[in-house]
Design a protein around this nucleic acid. Structure first.
Lengths: 342, 342
DNA sequence: CTGAAAGCGCTTACAG
DNA sequence: CTGAAAGCGCTTACAG
C-alpha cells in the first residue's frame, strides 16, 4: 500500500541496505550515493514504516503513562509535562487510565509491561502495594511515580510525602490553629500515598505535643471534589468542629471550601484550608488555596530521564529519587491582606 | 526473546496456522486441537506479539488523540472520556499535544495521519483553518472535534458554537444586563472556534436591538486563566465598564472572576459572568460558574463511533454531527438565593 | 478442519 | 562503502 524501501532502492540503483543506512543516518555512505537515495525518497514520497522497524529492532518509540484518572487535575498537569518531555526525548506517549482499579493496575505490570509495543512504563499506582508491585514480571523498564514502599525493586520518582504532609500541618500549627483536621485518609493498606500523608499529619501534631483525635481524621473514598465536600460537611457536624483542615489533595480542598462557603463559614477566618498538589485551579480560586507544591516539572523530567536511561540499557540498582516541594502559603490560610500582592 | 507462535505450534503438534486460529478465535478449530493448543500456550506462557500482528494485518489497535493541551481542563475531561470510550472499543489511545502550534498541527495531518502505527485520528485543531484541513493527505480516518468549517472533507463532531454562544449572551440579556462584554476573541482567521463564538455574541446582541461595542469585545491570546484575568482587568479599566461578561471558555471566566475579586467587585451583583465548557472546576467555585455545557460524553461516544465505523471501512460521505448542549445557569449569573439548593 | 509457504517492511551480521 | 540474505513474529490466500 505504501512506497517501500525496496522500491526506493530500485529507483536509486542501490540495495535496501543502503537506503536503510541513509534513512537512519548510519555509517559512512558515499555523499553522492546518499544524494541519489535522498532524491529517490523525495520523488517517491517514501516514508519508513515504523511498525516494520519496531518488529526488527525491538523498539517501538512508545512509552506508556498509566495513571488513575486524567480528570484529576494533578494528573492532567503532570501528563502534559510528561508528554512534552517525552517528545523532547523522541518518545510518544500512550495513556492508560486505571481508575485506581486493582485489576487494571495488575494488568499493567503483568500484561502491558510485557507488550512489545511499549518500550517503557511510567506508572502511578493507586491500588497496588509494595508487595504486589514487587511481584511484577515486567520485561520493560518501569518507573513509579509518587512515593511508594516498593523500594529496591523499581525505580521511583516522587516527593517526600511524609515530610510534605508534616510541613503542611506545621504551617497550620504555626498560624495558631488549635483543632486541625485532615481529609483524605484511606484505610485500605493498599494506597500508600494516603498512609504517608496521614503519617505526616500525625507526626506534626505529636511533635507539637498535640493529641491526634480520630474524629478529625476524615476519610475519603477517592480524591475528587465531592469527596472533599462531604468530608468537610461531616467535620462541621462534629460537636467541636475544626478550625483548620489539611486536605490530601487540592481537589479535596476545593470541595471542602465549597462546603464551607455553603455553610457560611469564611476561609481562612473560621477555617484555614491547605491542599496538596499546587493545581492551577487552586491558585485562581478566591480565596486562593494554600498548598504543597511538588515540582512537577522536575518529576516529569527525572522520571523520563530515568526511564530513558533504563531503556538504553542502564542496569544499575533501582533507585528512589526525591524531588523538591515547596509550601505555597496563600489566602486560604493567611489573611487576605498579606497576599494582596497576588 | 519471547515465546513464539512457532514454538507453541511445535509443542502442540500443529502448524502455526492453527495456533493463529485459536488465538484469534477463528474458524472451526476441532475442540480437542483447540484444547491442545490452549494448553501449550498456557505451559509456555505464550503471548502474541502485537507488533508482528500489526505488520501483517495493517492495523495497530491504536488511535491518536491530538489536542491543544491536556492542562486545559476541558481537554483533560474530554480525553478522560475518550480514553474510556476507546477502551470499550478495544482501542488504545496515543495522546499528542499541539499547543495550538500550526506547524505541529500540520505535521499531524501530514505525518501522523499516514503513520501505520495509528489506525485513526481524533483531532481537535486550533490553528488550522478549513482550507488547510482540507489539504490533508491522510491515509487513516480523521474525525475532527469541535466545530469547524471543514465541512465535506472530514467527519466532525461538536456542538453548535454559534448557537451556544448566542444562548449564553441571551441569558445575560434576559437577566437585564446592559453592557455585555465578551472575552476570548481572536483575530487570526485560523481559530474558527473563536470566530463562531464572537458571531454568536454579535447575533444575540443584534437580535436584541443592541449595538456591538468594539471596546467590549476583549481578545485573548490563548484560553488560560491568566488571559481571562488580564482581559477582565482591561475591561474594568474602561470608562464605562461592563456589567456582564461572556467568556469563551471556563478558564477565561475563572481568570476574570479572580480579577473581579481582587478589584472588590462582586459576582454576579456588579458583574455577571458566564463561561463555556462546563468544567468541574467552575461547578465548585464560589460563586459557582454559569456556563454552556456541551455533552462531553456524547462527543466522546459519537466521535469514537464515527472513527470506528471509518476504520472498519465505512466510506459514506463525511458528515457533521451536532451534539446537544445545555445552558447551566449558576450563581455567577443568578443571585445566590436562587441556587441555594446546590 | 489443518498444513506449507509466502510475505508484511524493515534491520543487521556476514562478506567483500 | 555496499550487497545478498536471513529473519523479526505474525497472517492469509492456496491447497487439500
Amino acid at each position: 500500500m505504501h512506497v517501500t524501501m525496496r522500491e526506493v532502492a530500485l529507483r536509486a540503483g542501490v540495495s535496501p541496505r543502503t537506503v536503510s543506512n541513509v534513512v537512519n543516518d548510519f555509517a559512512l555512505v558515499a555523499p553522492e550515493t546518499r544524494a541519489r537515495v535522498r532524491q529517490a525518497i523525495e520523488e517517491l514520497g517514501y516514508r519508513p514504516n515504523p511498525i516494520a522497524k519496531s518488529l526488527r529492532s525491538g523498539r517501538s518509540g512508545f512509552i506508556m503513562l498509566a495513571l488513575p484518572e486524567l480528570s484529576i487535575s494533578y494528573f492532567a498537569e503532570l501528563s502534559s509535562l510528561v508528554i512534552a518531555e517525552a517528545r523532547r526525548c523522541s518518545y510518544t506517549v500512550i495513556i492508560e487510565q486505571t481508575d485506581g482499579d486493582p485489576e487494571r493496575e495488575r494488568q499493567l505490570i503483568e500484561r502491558d509491561a510485557r507488550n512489545p509495543f511499549v518500550d517503557g512504563l511510567l506508572f502511578s499506582p493507586l491500588a497496588l502495594n509494595a508487595d504486589q508491585l514487587r511481584a511484577s514480571s515486567a520485561e520493560v523498564p518501569i518507573v513509579l511515580l509518587g512515593e511508594h514502599g516498593a523500594v529496591g525493586i523499581h525505580d521511583h520518582v516522587g516527593i517526600d510525602n511524609v515530610g510534605a504532609a508534616r510541613a503542611a500541618v506545621e504551617h497550620l500549627i504555626e498560624l495558631g490553629r488549635l483543632r486541625i483536621a485532615a481529609i483524605g485518609h484511606q484505610d485500605a493498606a493498599s494506597n500508600e500515598t494516603s498512609q504517608f500523608r496521614s503519617q505526616g499529619y500525625r507526626e506534626a501534631l505529636e511533635a507539637a505535643g498535640r493529641r491526634v483525635e480520630p474524629d478529625l481524621l476524615a476519610s475519603a473514598p477517592s480524591y475528587h471534589r465531592d469527596d472533599g465536600a462531604s468530608a468537610m460537611a461531616r467535620l462541621l457536624d462534629l460537636a467541636d468542629p475544626p478550625d483548620a483542615v489539611f486536605c490530601y489533595n487540592d481537589l479535596l480542598a476545593i470541595g471542602a471550601m465549597r462546603t464551607l462557603a455553603e455553610r457560611g463559614r469564611s476561609v481562612p477566618e473560621d477555617v484555614a484550608v491547605i491542599g496538596f498538589d499546587d493545581s492551577e485551579e487552586g491558585r485562581y480560586r478566591s480565596p486562593s488555596l494554600s498548598t504543597i507544591a511538588p515540582d512537577k516539572r522536575a518529576i516529569a523530567a527525572a522520571a523520563m530521564a530515568r526511564l530513558v536511561g533504563r531503556m538504553n540499557g542502564d542496569d544499575s540498582p533501582p533507585a528512589s529519587q526525591a524531588v523538591p516541594f515547596r509550601l505555597e502559603a496563600r489566602e486560604s490560610t493567611l489573611s487576605v491582606a498579606r497576599t494582596a500582592s497576588f
